[in-house]
């Protein structure tokens, strides 16, 4: 029996995550409104997209509280790009805050505009040669106690794990490498 993963599906590249997770044997549930968020899951994916849109819709479609509660209760969660921003406790160049479950500080659009988007290869914990795509990406400026730094690229922290929360600046769902999704499914 595959694990049942909720995928936030209000805006962004959620289908890419679903396809990957389904290929790895997981069952995906699209979260679009309050009733969807009231179900229970073995994990949650917060995909890439615009965090300002996702954060707003999370609240207005009444999914914010139930999902925050589940994250705080230890449900595994993976946030990519905008998902990292949704999880961050502090965002140093934006007044908006979202779940705030991940210590501590990220910078939005940290590399600049689309011209500055780039590809890289780096390590992720014990994994080496992970392909990474940074698209108007954030990075992590400061981590809190108990946070494991998994990836550093160009001198910036770009992936961390804190308890059952996995967050990264880049997009594993866009690269033909399953290791990060497999890691998440085993969390």
């Amino acid at each position: 029996m595959g694990r049942r993963i909720g995928v936030l599906s209000v805006q962004g590249a959620f289908i890419e995550h679903e396809k990957r997770l389904q290929r790895l044997g997981a069952e995906c549930v699209e979260l679009r409104k309050h009733e969807d968020a009231m179900k229970s899951f073995d994990g949650l994916v917060l995909p890439g997209g615009e965090s300002s849109v996702q954060g707003k819709l999370l609240r207005e479609l009444e999914m914010f509280e139930p999902l925050k509660r589940q994250i705080e209760e230890g449900m595994p969660v993976m946030g990519t790009c905008a998902g990292l921003i949704l999880l961050a406790a502090e965002i140093n160049n934006d007044t908006r805050r979202h779940f705030q479950t991940l210590p501590r500080t990220v910078r939005r659009n940290a590399y600049g505009r689309q011209r500055e988007s780039f590809c890289a290869t780096g390590s992720f914990g014990d994994f080496t040669d992970i392909p990474m795509k940074f698209i108007r990406a954030p990075y992590i400026e400061e981590v809190g106690e108990g946070t494991e730094i998994l990836s550093v690229v160009r001198g910036n922290i770009v992936a961390v794990r804190y308890k059952k929360q996995l967050a990264m600046s880049f997009h594993p769902e866009l690269c033909p490498d399953d290791r990060i999704h497999e890691y998440f499914l085993k969390m």
């Binding site: 805006q11 590249a13 866009l174």
Partner: peptide, 18 residues
Amino acid sequence: GNRYELNKELAQMLKGGV
């Protein structure tokens, strides 16, 4: 190459949006 892929992928991030 990479640049074109990244540009297509930015559009993917805009999906489901206005």
